[in-house]
Write a protein that binds this DNA or RNA. Structure first.
Lengths: 333, 333
DNA sequence: AACTCTCCAGAGAGCGCTCTCCGAATGAGT
DNA sequence: ACTCATTCGGAGAGCGCTCTCTGGAGAGTT
């Protein structure tokens, strides 16, 4: 910013052409005489010209940047969901492929939500991606109404009809429970995720579905996807039903907590109680015992989301991408 | 973007004043008659006016956004450093306090680096923060030369003189080794981090310093901060010196790997081999046994970095912030 | 040879905003 | 009553770019 950067005008002067011509060259229009094009290119090179993006987006009404909005309440900000980082990185590198930038926005508080809304209204971004929405978040709807493309990572609450990329939470949970059934477990409990998140709801649904098919009773405790909540929930479960011989935990972080609680309670895993998690975070591979869990395709899901936000609605094949999950059997079940 | 958003002009017309006056009100200048101000405010409200940022930054040459550049080679992108996410979140919320946005950029490849350079040259950002730099990254220097404020999370390689916020890696490592010495260990090895990163270098230096003071021999293996590299390094160490009774590992991820390798080799921790890690990631609390490690203030460090990039050089008290570390003693040593 | 058609570069009008003058109106001073 | 500050809103010139429209030159047609 310090010293003046060359403008289109300067390049035009140096190449002895008009601004319009330089603009054409810069934007790769075909209708330019090769000789003139070369001259312009040389001038650009010599001057070290880089187009000013503000000026450009003022007229094109395009910003080449997409917001990634993380609707995470402040309390959870510091409990590290390891997948979060993977999503960010995938989205970022995927977007770079299309020459777009990622603008990261936290929307954990009311104030922050208003900020995001104003920001988008201010025309700063060409699209918005939501990650980790809770309940009936009004923000996506508000933004969609402004005519800005919106997508969600994970299926949003039913009220809003947004395009989204999700994994098959219901199917994955059912898969986990069926595995537990297959290895002969009879009293299968679950530690569910927060019920204001669709992921939490769906995994509970999958658990219930699988159990209903086999006529078993469901035993449910609810956590909030953090490890400590897993510890607490497991303890409650053990109090409620000391006879349980298996537990399906709605995410690995809580499963790790459950493993700890189980150990403290003197239960052996998987001998006394089998445990299946969900997510297949890296840590799942080196818990004691290594965690059997449901893996879902984070990278593919993030990629699908990016594709959705970049594709105009009329060109989309589908608005709802659902990716399959896979059971990873280790030692805990 | 879809339908026309109201402009300054429209607000001016509605409030029966000139554009200039509206601009004054929007930017909070004092020299506006309260009555007129109210009228303008009402018009803004009624029209739902939000200033167009492109137009504004075209004339002010300010963008209110700061780039967060992650110079991580693609190979490491998918090995989740849990702290990475914490840094991102802290930076983001800290920046929001000053009304700035975070633009996340990956700079793992040559091509990506060039992209970042062009982007910054294009005047998109008011400042750049670097995270996780390797070796003598030319990018920060190039950007600093353009007159854009640059800071680094962690001390950069000596060649470039950038403002930075770092933790006391040398001191922390020394602290860890001294603890090992205190509990009576005699053959203390280390698994060092990548030597093209200052953090890796400094922690090795701290290890060597502490050992030299006590006249012990150093035993070094080098990893790359990933868990698997910790496994490999630990195995090598065990081959090189089967008698070792302690190991200081340059980060927790590798320490977790080392713990696994040790278990596989039939060594008990801490009885046979004491292990100390570095970082105090959440997982360190629930390894088996829980990991003794060096905690450093990630949030404070990120906050300090943000403060540096936002403060003009002439107003800065210091260009180099170094935060103290703390040894967290658990069961592994 | 006169005409039309195509191709391609230049002219110039904005995009929405900020900010520096300017000038009108008000109040104080003589 | 008249002059001189002083306050505060308006006019208008850009900021750097895109893009439509225009017009000149050369090629093709009759």
């Amino acid at each position: 910013m310090g010293d003046k950067r060359p403008t289109l005008e300067a390049v035009a002067a140096r190449a002895q052409v008009s601004r319009a011509t330089v603009s054409r060259v810069v934007n790769g229009q075909a209708t330019v005489n090769p000789q003139i094009r070369d001259a312009v290119l040389r001038a650009i090179e010599e001057l070290g010209y880089v187009p000013n993006s503000a000026a450009r987006s003022l007229v094109t009404r395009q910003t080449d940047s997409i917001a990634l909005v993380v609707s995470e309440p402040p309390t959870r900000v510091f409990s590290d969901d390891p997948l979060f980082s993977l999503v960010i990185r995938t989205v970022s590198s995927e977007l770079e492929l299309s020459g777009k930038q990622v603008i990261l926005m936290l929307a954990g508080s009311q104030r922050a939500q208003a900020r995001v809304e104003d920001y988008v209204a201010g025309g700063h971004v060409d699209g918005v991606m939501f990650v980790s929405m809770h309940g009936a978040d009004p923000l996506p709807g508000a933004i969609a109404r402004m005519g800005v493309p919106v997508v969600s990572y994970g299926r949003p609450a039913v009220a809003v009809d947004l395009p989204y990329a999700d994994n098959d939470n219901v199917g994955g949970a059912a898969q986990a429970v069926e595995h537990l059934l297959d290895i002969g477990r009879r009293r299968i409990a679950t530690i569910a995720g927060p019920q204001d998140m669709i992921g939490g709801q769906d995994r509970l649904t999958g658990y219930r579905d699988a159990l209903r098919m086999s006529d078993r009773r469901s035993i449910v405790a609810v956590g909030d996807f953090t490890r400590t909540s897993g510890v607490t929930a497991m303890r409650h479960l053990l109090e409620d039903d000391p006879e349980l011989d298996a537990v399906f935990v709605a995410n690995d972080l809580m499963a790790i907590g459950a493993l700890q609680a189980l150990r403290q309670a003197g239960r052996r895993v998987p001998d006394d109680v089998a445990v299946v998690g969900f997510d297949d975070i890296e840590a799942a591979g080196f818990t004691d015992p290594p965690l059997t869990t449901v893996r879902h395709p984070v990278v593919e899901q993030a990629t699908a989301m990016v594709k959705l936000v970049l594709t105009p609605p009329e060109e989309r094949e589908t608005d709802h991408v659902i990716l399959p999950t896979e059971l990873v059997v280790r030692d805990s079940a």
